[in-house]
Design a binder for these strands. Sequence first.
DNA 1: CGTGATTTTGAAATAATTCAAGAAGCGTGG
DNA 2: CCACGCTTCTTGAATTATTTCAAAATCACG
Lengths: 245, 245
Amino acid sequence: MTAAKKPAYPLPADDCHTCEIREQAMCRAMPSQDLHHLQHFRNRQALLPAKQHLYQQGQQHRQVYTLHDGWVMLYKALPNGKRQILRYALPGDFLCFQSNLTGPMQHSALALTDCSFCVFPREQLLPMMKQMPQLSIQLALFTARDYEFQVDISHKNAQQRLAYLFYDLFIRIKQHHPGITDTVQLPITQEDIGDTLGLTQVHVNRTLRQLRQEEILEFMHHKLSIRNYRSLKVLAGCEAESLHI
Amino acid sequence: MTAAKKPAYPLPADDCHTCEIREQAMCRAMPSQDLHHLQHFRNRQALLPAKQHLYQQGQQHRQVYTLHDGWVMLYKALPNGKRQILRYALPGDFLCFQSNLTGPMQHSALALTDCSFCVFPREQLLPMMKQMPQLSIQLALFTARDYEFQVDISHKNAQQRLAYLFYDLFIRIKQHHPGITDTVQLPITQEDIGDTLGLTQVHVNRTLRQLRQEEILEFMHHKLSIRNYRSLKVLAGCEAESLHI
DNA sequence: CGTGATTTTGAAATAATTCAAGAAGCGTGG
DNA sequence: CCACGCTTCTTGAATTATTTCAAAATCACG
């Protein structure tokens, strides 16, 4: 509503901040002094094979994590039986933060690939945040970004949502693998994409076909190939190139 | 997608955390020692009449605020010419926080009523967050809550969204005016509601009529009246009463 | 090589939007 | 106090994007 017709809310030229390349992943964004401090709290390292849960919604979970290696999917089961995928965590991301710091988890974390983590006791999270303001700040900023992602897609149609998601993932992966040109491996399915963007798997499938026919991108066999980077960005609403520093 | 039919993602019994009464507004949630510290950064107090902007999207704004009195609406103009209302700020809320701490504002703030604020220089925000971890923590938690609100409504239909919003507002206002029983004054229009929930004003109107006919609530002339508190909570998906402590 | 998961496609149903136009409400100034 | 204009609300009819249901085709793993 409040469409472009009437007075309309003008959009400042350089808006699309969510399209900035995400800051260095959480760990790297912390000053080394704090990282050192972090070690102090460290419990141990842990490994988890693909398709295993790191924690599950409803659990009174006792640990928090930074992801060292692999992909983790955070999702939330909703009252209507559907699920909302909240985030695909990549190495450096912090896991197990939520608004209710001490209560049961409000979302689940599932390893999409074999993963390794740094583990910290959850009861230490608040002390950690108090002693390392940089951690609190990063958590605030990363949460704000997830929030803004959700707000941004909520007014896009199916094509734009797909474009936005793939653009974001592509950029993020590229930070970890600078050699990449136009094809990346994504350990996710059409159903995952649907649950990330609030669309049905069927509609995701049809929309992917359109994007393929329009030669913007291809996603098949877990491989994403960008065919027309510029069109992708326009469609995603991320034209303002200047901001991607 | 991933509907309740197939394996389905089971919902833990006590989930609906967003329906908790929000913690005391930001200022009150801070230890008095930090509040004292906050004074140190304070610039001045400010007043703003209704219908004036506190800041606007795109501006390189120089201040941040805590809202002392009145209602402020935070909203974002979207690429398609629509707007998304992000939050209705009530006394005690912090204003002007976003993931890009130093860049131009990604949203606007509009006074819905005459307001008063505490003003702080924006360049001091990061130092403030560093020196007062409790501030960073509160910002992280409040942002997480806004995020969860957005996620939660994204899978609800029009009736459920309206119910969820009104329930949340009702609870929050009640904290400020404990005397209230079932009717509160909201300085917002049907169009605002639509822009908050991602619906058209027309559809909000029709849905309000349904809710009135079903004797769940009434919203007319800026007055919200809860007619059936229990049905409202069920519809909103906030049945788990135990959580509203 | 078979079995379960994932993808593909079609047809029908639906929630919400768009367009349109009139009615009611609200503030301001004569 | 009424008249004027502007904003907000109300309602109807037609349109649309997306979902739902269903069934077949393909893929991928042990």
